[in-house]
């Protein structure tokens, strides 16, 4: 059950779950995502409670540009798809394809983050600063927490790409890839809720 006993040569069918360490990691990460769900749930609750307190700042309906947000959404959802391709490559033991798909995922993540930074910069110029109102504080906290998760994911997956290049696909690196993939899906799902609750509802009411 040692982590490095299969390190060279033949890799088991699902290398991410081949060792007890790997199985622990995957289960622990599922549980962690359960906690993250509560974290974002609380942030959403705070936003929903405060989103009508706009005060003198711009109304969400005049502030949000859906075209920009839709583009960001499309980019992030596509990155979720490419991370699935990466996991498929992992299961096919195809290291080259795995690394390439992870690079595509990171690049798409960077694109999303760039759009979000531009969006925030634009809002501040419109008079929608962090301290403007309870609406603005809760908006930046919710969307910013998500953005920080994306940024962390980019650094994390980049570091895993580096490890894959150096160490190859082993029963040690495979759980890392798998768990990072779970993380990436999770922040995508959170974004779907942000798109609905923050932007679409902001446009309607």
């Amino acid at each position: 059950m040692s982590t490095h006993s299969h390190a060279e040569g033949h890799l088991p069918h699902e290398p991410e779950k081949a060792t007890l360490e790997g199985r622990n990691k995957v289960l622990g990460f599922w549980l962690f995502l359960g906690g993250e769900t509560v974290l974002f749930g609380t942030l959403f609750s705070a936003f929903l409670a405060l989103r009508h307190q706009v005060l003198d700042g711009p109304q969400p309906s005049e502030l949000f540009k859906l075209s920009l947000v839709a583009a960001a959404t499309a980019i992030l959802l596509t990155s979720s798809l490419t991370s699935v391709f990466a996991i498929q490559a992992l299961h096919n033991h195809n290291v080259k394809a795995l690394i390439n798909w992870l690079i595509v995922t990171v690049v798409l993540g960077l694109g999303f983050l760039g759009l979000e930074i531009y969006e925030f910069y634009h809002y501040v110029h419109e008079g929608h600063g962090f301290t403007t109102s309870a609406f603005s504080s809760s908006f930046y906290t919710l969307v910013g927490f998500h953005g920080a998760h994306v940024a962390f994911g980019i650094f994390w997956i980049s570091s895993i790409i580096g490890q894959l290049m150096k160490k190859g696909l082993t029963v040690v690196t495979a759980p890392k890839v798998y768990v990072a993939g779970m993380y990436w899906h999770f922040i995508d799902v959170v974004w779907v809720f942000i798109f609905t609750v923050v932007y679409l509802m902001g446009k309607v009411v």
């Binding site: 974290l39 609380t42 942030l43 705070a46 409670a49 405060l50 307190q53 706009v54 005060l55 962090f130 301290t131 109102s133 309870a134 609406f135 603005s136 504080s137 809760s138 906290t141």
Partner: peptide, 25 residues
């Protein structure tokens, strides 16, 4: 964690989560 972060933002970065004067609750 979220509650403490929000209170920290209110205190350190002038956010308005819990300050009724600025729409907080």
């Amino acid at each position: 964690a979220v509650g403490l972060a929000a209170l920290m933002f209110d205190r350190v970065f002038d956010a308005n989560f819990f300050d009724p004067n600025n729409g907080g609750n």
